[in-house]
Simulated scan of single mutants.
Amino acid sequence: MPAFEFVKSSYSGGNAGQECVEVARNIPGTVAVRDSKAGDGPVLRLTPTAWAAFTGALSVR
């Protein structure tokens, strides 16, 4: 299994204990998302199309 290279979202807070999301886009055809506070926890894997729909829905708010 290839290693995901996670990057913290620019929307995440900088202080410890805040809600933080990390995203990895280094694997073709996959966008991986995880909670930065649970680095060994579950990883949500999405297609780029599903990721675009998800982030687009967030922007509407």
Rank of each mutant, 00 (worst) to 15 (best):
A32H: 11
R45Q: 14
A52C: 09
A24E: 00
T49K: 13
C20T: 01
I27E: 08
E22C: 07
S10R: 15
Q18S: 14
K37I: 05
T47Y: 10
P48W: 01
A52Y: 07
T49V: 12
P42C: 08
E5T: 06
E22W: 03
L46D: 11
F6Q: 10
E19L: 05
V31F: 12
G41N: 08
V23W: 03
R61S: 12
Y11N: 06
L44P: 12
P42Y: 02
N26D: 00
A50Y: 04
P28Q: 03
M1W: 09
V23H: 08
Y11P: 05
F54G: 06
F4C: 05
V43C: 07
V60K: 10
S36A: 11
A53I: 04
F4G: 04
P42A: 15
T30G: 11
V33P: 12
T55Q: 09
W51N: 10
V43A: 10
A57I: 01
D35I: 03
E5Q: 04
G56M: 06
F6S: 09
K37F: 07
S59W: 03
A16L: 14
A38Q: 15
M1P: 15
A50G: 11
T47W: 09
W51M: 06
V23I: 15
S9P: 06
R45T: 15
G13L: 00
P48R: 03
L44A: 11
R34M: 05
V23T: 13
N15L: 11
P28N: 07
G13S: 03
A53W: 01
P2V: 07
R45E: 14
M1Q: 15
T47F: 08
A53F: 03
D40V: 08
E22K: 07
G39N: 10
P48M: 02
N26C: 01
T49P: 10
E19P: 05
L46F: 14
R45F: 06
E22M: 04
A53K: 09
A32N: 14
R25W: 02
T55Y: 04
K37D: 13
S9T: 03
R25C: 15
P48F: 01
T49Y: 04
E22A: 12
T49D: 14
F6C: 04
A53L: 12
A32R: 11
T47C: 13
G29L: 12
G14I: 02
R61N: 12
F54V: 09
V23L: 07
G41L: 04
A32M: 10
T47G: 15
P42E: 05
P2S: 14
V21D: 00
A38M: 14
P28S: 08
L46Y: 13
A3D: 01
D35P: 05
N26H: 00
S59C: 11
G56K: 05
G17F: 00
N26S: 00
F54R: 02
N26G: 01
V31G: 14
F54D: 02
F54Q: 07
M1N: 15
T49E: 13
C20P: 06
T55D: 10
G56T: 07
F6R: 09
R61H: 09
L46E: 10
G41E: 02
A57L: 01
A32D: 06
V23F: 02
R34C: 07
T55F: 05
T30P: 12
